[in-house]
Simulated scan of single mutants.
Amino acid sequence: MRIIFQALKYVSFPVQTLAKCAKMIPVMIWGTIIMRKKYGGKDYFFAVIVTLGCSLFILYPASMDVSPFNKGRESTIWGVSLMLGYLGFDGFTSTFQDKLFKGYDMEIHNQIFYTTMCSCVLSLSGLILQNHLIPAVDFMFRHPDCFSDVVILSSVATASQFFISYTIRTFGALTFATIMTTRQLVSILLSCVWFVHPLSWMQWVGAAIVFGALYTRSFLRSKPQKPAVASPPRGSSPNPPNNS
């Protein structure tokens, strides 16, 4: 998470959101490397289609004054590199969690506990090395009303980890990446409806591409396959004898 926050210093928010929509592709790459999974051409095709649909939705807003190309921070090479690093590490995390669940039959609460402990150690080390620990504590003392907001945010984030881990353990990392990609688009759609933001025709096309690809992928996976007909043993007659 620190990588994505750091990237916001160098790239605009739409560019960051656009990069997060491409999460399915690195998850498939890591799945091939770590878990020796073999994805078919359909899986790669749908991953590219979903990413394309999200790209159309974000890059073509209804009003061109809020276009990411006319507003926001300049997308520097360092910022784009940070986003690529975020995608790589984020895809590795969910894929490795999937491997731990399948390889060691690990419980959800155990994995969340150890992952959170490692995150605490890394975050504390980063604060100490960058001399940000004392200013952070001083800020909390000077703004005590912020403490309740931090507690609420932390509680919601912890609860979401249980849903995330359960999804990865039950359905796999690629399904989780598909859900998270859809969540990005649904969040933007709800925001547009709630705050009465108009959608351009290109955004409607992008939304149709994303949901159409996801529903088509789910339909193809849920299609019942014909059971294979067992071949008769060698040396036996293909037709049963007639005793009449």
Rank of each mutant, 00 (worst) to 15 (best):
M180E: 07
D43Y: 07
M202L: 14
I108A: 02
S165N: 15
S244C: 07
I25F: 01
T158W: 07
S94Q: 13
S200I: 08
N70E: 08
R73T: 11
L100W: 04
S119H: 07
A157K: 04
N243K: 10
V27H: 00
L124W: 05
K9L: 14
K42H: 10
A177W: 03
C146V: 13
I134T: 12
L59C: 10
L124Q: 04
I209W: 00
T170L: 14
D90Q: 08
W194C: 03
P14C: 00
D43E: 15
F45K: 05
N110E: 12
F141T: 07
K38D: 13
Y166M: 13
V150W: 08
M117F: 14
R73W: 09
G31A: 02
V150I: 15
I179L: 15
F219H: 10
I34R: 00
F5W: 09
V186C: 06
I33G: 03
N243P: 01
L185P: 09
F162N: 03
K226H: 11
K9C: 08
M28W: 05
L82P: 04
T158R: 01
K223V: 12
Q161D: 05
F147D: 00
F147H: 04
S125M: 12
F57H: 05
P135G: 05
T181E: 07
A136H: 06
V48R: 00
G235R: 00
P144M: 05
G206E: 05
V27I: 04
T158D: 01
R142S: 10
C192P: 03
G40A: 01
A19M: 11
F139P: 02
V205K: 08
V150C: 13
A213F: 01
S187N: 12
A62K: 10
V27D: 02
G235N: 01
F219Y: 14
K71P: 04
I188F: 06
E74K: 13
Q6H: 12
W194I: 09
Q130N: 13
F139Q: 02
S75Y: 06
G31Y: 02
P198G: 06
L124G: 09
C54M: 02
L84S: 09
K223T: 14
A173N: 07
M106V: 14
S155F: 13
A22L: 10
K9E: 13
G88E: 08
P224R: 04
T216F: 09
D90R: 00
R2K: 04
G91T: 07
K71A: 12
F46P: 04
Y166C: 09
F46I: 15
R183D: 07
K42I: 15
H197P: 00
A19H: 05
L185K: 01
F69R: 06
I29G: 09
Y114I: 11
D90K: 02
C146W: 15
R169W: 06
S237D: 13
M180P: 03
T178P: 02
A159E: 00
Q97W: 06
G88W: 14
C120H: 05
V121P: 07
F92M: 12
F5R: 00
Y39R: 00
T17K: 01
I25L: 04
L190S: 09
K23D: 07
Y114R: 10
V196D: 14
S200D: 08
F46G: 05
A22V: 09
V121N: 04
V205D: 05
Q161P: 07
R169L: 01
Y60T: 11
E74Y: 14
